Simulated assay, not measured.
Amino acid sequence: MCGLCGALGAGPHWSDPMGGRTPQAERQARAAAANRVLGLYGLRLAPWADRFTLTGRTGRAAVVAHLGALWPEAERLAGRPCDPLDPAVIARLEGGAG
């Protein structure tokens, strides 16, 4: 995450609902998309109220306010770097050997 996003943590995040869906439907869709990547790290994201919960295989969990705060928490729970732009992750998502 860039430092500016972290510094501006208050108020709506750039990833908050757009496009005519309800906020709940938008959070559900975002969680489903994120779970494609998070599952590769043994993590799962679920909408909860106006936030998300992130859980690991061991039961450790964190509340995530918005997607900008997701990846640092994912790395903390997974105990390793979680890079959604890693070429091997992208290859696995696209069905390649990666």
Score class of each variant (00 low, 15 high):
residue 1 M to P: 00
residue 1 M to Y: 04
residue 1 M to W: 04
residue 1 M to V: 00
residue 1 M to I: 02
residue 1 M to K: 05
residue 2 C to Q: 09
residue 2 C to W: 06
residue 2 C to G: 00
residue 2 C to Y: 04
residue 2 C to S: 12
residue 2 C to L: 05
residue 3 G to H: 03
residue 3 G to W: 08
residue 3 G to D: 08
residue 3 G to I: 03
residue 3 G to P: 01
residue 4 L to G: 06
residue 4 L to Q: 06
residue 4 L to H: 06
residue 4 L to W: 02
residue 4 L to F: 07
residue 5 C to I: 13
residue 5 C to H: 03
residue 5 C to G: 04
residue 5 C to W: 03
residue 5 C to T: 06
residue 5 C to V: 11
residue 5 C to Y: 01
residue 6 G to F: 08
residue 6 G to N: 11
residue 7 A to W: 07
residue 7 A to K: 07
residue 7 A to R: 14
residue 7 A to N: 02
residue 7 A to E: 06
residue 8 L to W: 01
residue 8 L to V: 07
residue 8 L to R: 08
residue 10 A to I: 11
residue 10 A to E: 10
residue 10 A to D: 06
residue 10 A to V: 12
residue 10 A to L: 13
residue 10 A to K: 03
residue 11 G to C: 09
residue 11 G to H: 02
residue 12 P to T: 01
residue 12 P to D: 04
residue 12 P to F: 03
residue 12 P to N: 08
residue 13 H to L: 07
residue 13 H to M: 09
residue 13 H to Q: 07
residue 14 W to F: 10
residue 14 W to G: 01
residue 15 S to N: 03
residue 15 S to G: 05
residue 16 D to C: 09
residue 16 D to M: 10
residue 17 P to K: 02
residue 18 M to Y: 05
residue 18 M to C: 01
residue 18 M to N: 09
residue 19 G to N: 04
residue 19 G to D: 02
residue 20 G to M: 13
residue 20 G to E: 09
residue 20 G to H: 11
residue 20 G to V: 13
residue 21 R to I: 08
residue 21 R to T: 04
residue 21 R to E: 03
residue 21 R to C: 05
residue 22 T to W: 06
residue 22 T to C: 02
residue 23 P to F: 03
residue 24 Q to G: 13
residue 24 Q to R: 14
residue 25 A to S: 14
residue 25 A to P: 15
residue 25 A to R: 15
residue 25 A to V: 13
residue 25 A to L: 14
residue 26 E to W: 15
residue 26 E to C: 13
residue 26 E to S: 15
residue 27 R to T: 10
residue 27 R to D: 09
residue 27 R to N: 09
residue 27 R to K: 10
residue 27 R to A: 10
residue 27 R to S: 10
residue 27 R to V: 11
residue 28 Q to D: 15
residue 28 Q to V: 12
residue 28 Q to E: 15
residue 28 Q to I: 09
residue 28 Q to C: 11
residue 29 A to M: 13
residue 29 A to T: 14
residue 29 A to G: 15
residue 29 A to S: 15
residue 30 R to N: 14
residue 30 R to H: 14
residue 30 R to W: 13
residue 31 A to D: 14
residue 31 A to C: 12
